[in-house]
Design a protein around this nucleic acid. Structure first.
Lengths: 336, 336
DNA sequence: ATGAAAGCGCTAACAC
DNA sequence: GTGTTAGCGCTTTCAT
C-alpha cells in the first residue's frame, strides 16, 4: 500500500504539502501541486479513508436502517440512496434488521457508534430505546415512511393512497369492497399498514358503504400471503366485487388468486394496489403510484445537508404526492 | 464520545489493560476484567472501528460489487451476504455499478482501496482493468454467477437450467418453442445470458427441433421488456406453443402478454422460467429453481475463510444444483 | 509556500 | 498481570 509518505518522498516535499496539494487547498504553488499529483497518480495513491476518518472524526458513511433488503420497496430505496450520496463521496452501510420471518434485530450501539455520520431509517417502527440511542449519539437522522418527533422525514400521505383507491372504486359503482393488507407485525413495517387500513375503513364510512366482517384481511405484506387471503375471500358465499390491496405485490397476489379462481378481471373483480411496482404496468394493474426513488433522493439530500451544516438540525417533514394510475384491473361494478 | 482512555481512567487501569480485557485476551486478572467491563458498560463504550482498522490494517468490511441493487436476484444476494457475515462482525459496503439504463460505472481504485478486506462480485462482467485492480490490491475475491481464472466462484450450471427447461417442454410434446432473454449488454449481466441462450440453441438442436428466425428474442432482462417481446411473438402468423424465458421476471412478462393477447396458459401457450422468484409460485409459474441465498452464503463463507487465512487463497469453483419446479404454466402441446 | 510535529483512538511489543 | 510507548496514515496548527 502506498502511503502519503511515499508520495511525499517521490515528489520531494513534505506529507503536509502532499495533503494540501491533493485536496486542492491553498498555499501550494502550481508547480508543486503538479509534481505531487504526478507522483500520486504514478503510485496509484489513494488516501486511507480509515486514517482520514480518525483525524477528521467523520466517516463519510451513511447507515441505512432497514427491515428488509430484498423487498422491492426497500431495495429501491437503498439503491436510490446510494445513487444520491455517491456523488458526494459518501457510502452506504447496510443496517439490516431482518433476522427471521417473525423477529427483527434491535438497532444497537455498536452498529452505528463511530461508524456512520448519519442515518436514514426506512419504514421500521423503532423502539423507544433505539430512538434514544440515535439521539444520544447525536446522529443526524432522517426517516422515510414513518415520522418521529424531532427527526426529519420524507413520506407520502399513506392514508390518502387508500382513500384515492376506494374513491376510484366507488366512482365505478362498487359497493362490495374488501381490503387486503392489515398488519401482523407493526414493529417490522412501521405505522404505514395501520394508516392505510384505517384510511380504508374511513373512506368506506365516508362513502356510506359497509365494511363486511372478514373483508379486512390480515396479511404479511407479501404476494403469497395475499393470494391465500384472496382465496379465502373468494371461497365465501358472498364475494366482493372489488379489492383494495395495500401494496402492488399484494395486489398481484390477488390477481393471481382471481386467475386461479376463474374470476375475470375486471368484469367480475376489480383490483387496485398501491406503489406502482415495476410489475404493475406489466400486468395492467391499476394502482396509486408513489415515487420511491424521489423519497430516497430527498431524504439523502436532507441528511447530507444536516451533516454538513454547523447548525443544529432543522426538522422538516416532506410529504410527496401520489397519483392514481388507472389501468386494466379496475372497471365498472355489476358486469359480472 | 467516550474513548478507551475514559474507560481506563474510570477503572483505574491503563488503556492497554482495557484493550486486553475488553477483547477477552489473556493476562488480565478476573477482577480487573470485571472492573473494566463494568466501566465500559457504564460509559457505553464502543471501540472505534476506525482506530482499530488503522492499527490492524483490517476494516471488517466486505465490498459487494453489483450491477443493480433493486432487482430481485441481486437484492436477495446482498441480503443473504449481509446475513452470512454479520455474525462474524463484518459489514457490507455497497459497490453499486449501476449508473444509467445503458451505462455502468467502472470499479475504481478509490472504491475499494484500503476500504474493504475482500470483495464479492455479483454477476457483472468485469473489464480487464477492473480485474487487474482487484488483483493488484491483493483483495480476496469471490464471484457469484460468473467465473474468472484465479478467483473462487459460486454459481449454478446456467446452461443446464435452460436445457432442463427445454427438455421439460419437449417431453410435453412441444416442438414450436421460442426463447426470451438473449442479451443486449453483456458488461452489465455477465456471461449468464449468453450461456443460457447458447444452451437453448443447443438443447433444441439436440432434440432435433428447429430454432425459428425471430424466436430467440433479445430482452433487457426485465418483465416489461419480455412483455413487449412476447407480444411481437404472438402477433406473427406462426406462433410458438411454448416459451422459455431466461428468468422468472421475464416469464411473468410473457404470462402477462399471454393474458393480454387472450392466449390460455397452458392450453394455448406453455411458459417456463428460471429462478423460482417469489412470484413464481404465486402465479403458478413452472420454473427451474436456483437457491440464490445458498450461493450467497457459500460465497461469503469462502471469502471470510480466505481473509482469515494466512495462506494464499485456494481457488475453488462451486456449482450448486438446480431443480425443475413443475407448476401450472406448462402443459402438453397441441391442446390449443 | 512549505515543513515539523502533535494528535485522532486504538493495538502490540516490550518492560517491569 | 499490568503499564509505557511506539506507531497505524492521515490532517492541522504553528513555525519559518
Amino acid at each position: 500500500m502506498t502511503t502519503i509518505l511515499d508520495v511525499a518522498r517521490a515528489s520531494g516535499v513534505s506529507v503536509a504539502t502532499v495533503s494540501r496539494a491533493l485536496r486542492g487547498l491553498d498555499r501550494v504553488s502550481a508547480t508543486t501541486r503538479a509534481r505531487v499529483l504526478e507522483a500520486a497518480t504514478q503510485l496509484h495513491y489513494v488516501a486511507s479513508p480509515t486514517a482520514t476518518s480518525l483525524v477528521s472524526g467523520r466517516t463519510r458513511v451513511i447507515g441505512v436502517v432497514t427491515p428488509f433488503v430484498d423487498r422491492w420497496y426497500f431495495s429501491t430505496l437503498i439503491s436510490a440512496i446510494e445513487k444520491s450520496i455517491r456523488h458526494q463521496a459518501h457510502h452506504v452501510l447496510l443496517l439490516d434488521l431482518e433476522e427471521s420471518p417473525n423477529r427483527r434485530l434491535s438497532l444497537t450501539r455498536d452498529m452505528v457508534s463511530k461508524r456512520v455520520d448519519g442515518v436514514v431509517v426506512l419504514n421500521v417502527m423503532l423502539a423507544e430505546q433505539e430512538k434514544v440511542l440515535l439521539s444520544d449519539l447525536r446522529l443526524p437522522t432522517v426517516t422515510i415512511g414513518n415520522t418521529y418527533p424531532g427527526w426529519s422525514s420524507v413520506r407520502i400521505d399513506d392514508g390518502a393512497t387508500v382513500t384515492t383507491a376506494v374513491q376510484h372504486l366507488v366512482a365505478l359503482g362498487h359497493t362490495e369492497i374488501a381490503y387486503i393488507g392489515a398488519v401482523l407485525r407493526p414493529e417490522a413495517y412501521g405505522a404505514v399498514p395501520r394508516e392505510r387500513r384505517d384510511a380504508f375503513v374511513q373512506a368506506m364510512r365516508d362513502a356510506a358503504l359497509p365494511v363486511h366482517r372478514g373483508w379486512v384481511r390480515l396479511s404479511d405484506w407479501t404476494a403469497g400471503d395475499a393470494t391465500v387471503d384472496a382465496m379465502m375471500l373468494f371461497s365465501e358465499e358472498r364475494r366482493p366485487t372489488a379489492v383494495v390491496a395495500a401494496s402492488d405485490e399484494m395486489a398481484l397476489g390477488v390477481l393471481a388468486a382471481a386467475n386461479r379462481a376463474g374470476l375475470r378481471v375486471p368484469e367480475e373483480l376489480s383490483i387496485i394496489g398501491v406503489d406502482d411496482h415495476p410489475l404493475a404496468s406489466v400486468f395492467g394493474l391499476t394502482t396509486v403510484r408513489q415515487d420511491v426513488r424521489a423519497q430516497a433522493a430527498m431524504a439523502s439530500a436532507m441528511l447530507l445537508r444536516t451533516i454538513a451544516s454547523p447548525f443544529p438540525p432543522a426538522v422538516e417533514g416532506v410529504v410527496l404526492p401520489t397519483e392514481l394510475m388507472v389501468r386494466d384491473t379496475t372497471g365498472p361494478a355489476g358486469r359480472g
